[in-house]
């Protein structure tokens, strides 16, 4: 976990998360989160190279549903929740590039 010593680039990560931080927030988080990352470094004490990872606490497999059509939401309710809509579609600012 040597990379942690560099500390995180809060500004870059916030951009990935689509959050704009003020300068004060950036400075504040930078300090606080580096402290948290420093704390987390204690995991380096453990050798887990031969340990399986746990994604689900209680392992279960093959949870399926039948391919049967069920009820969808009322269109008006969906539109009522949308902050902006046109002709039954959700309106967003013009998408320019992928």
């Amino acid at each position: 976990m040597s990379k942690t010593h560099e500390g995180m680039d809060v500004g870059y990560v916030a951009k990935l998360a689509c959050i704009d931080l003020t300068e004060e927030e950036t400075t504040l988080f930078q300090g606080q989160l580096n402290q948290v990352l420093h704390y987390v470094e204690q995991l380096d004490e453990l050798d887990v190279s031969n340990v399986e990872s746990t994604a689900h606490a209680i392992p279960v497999f093959n949870v399926f549903r039948k391919d049967v059509v069920g009820t969808s939401l009322n269109h008006a309710d969906v539109m009522a929740n949308a902050p902006s809509s046109v002709n039954g579609e959700v309106r967003v600012p013009k998408i320019i590039d992928q």
């Binding site: 976990m1 990379k3 942690t4 987390v40 995991l43 453990l46 887990v48 340990v51 399986e52 990872s53 746990t54 994604a55 606490a57």
Partner: peptide, 15 residues
């Protein structure tokens, strides 16, 4: 790998 995967492995130990 350094954070998430490692945490998931330690999670196994805790369990």
């Amino acid at each position: 790998d350094a954070y998430y995967l490692k945490a998931q492995k330690v999670r196994t130990l805790i369990r």
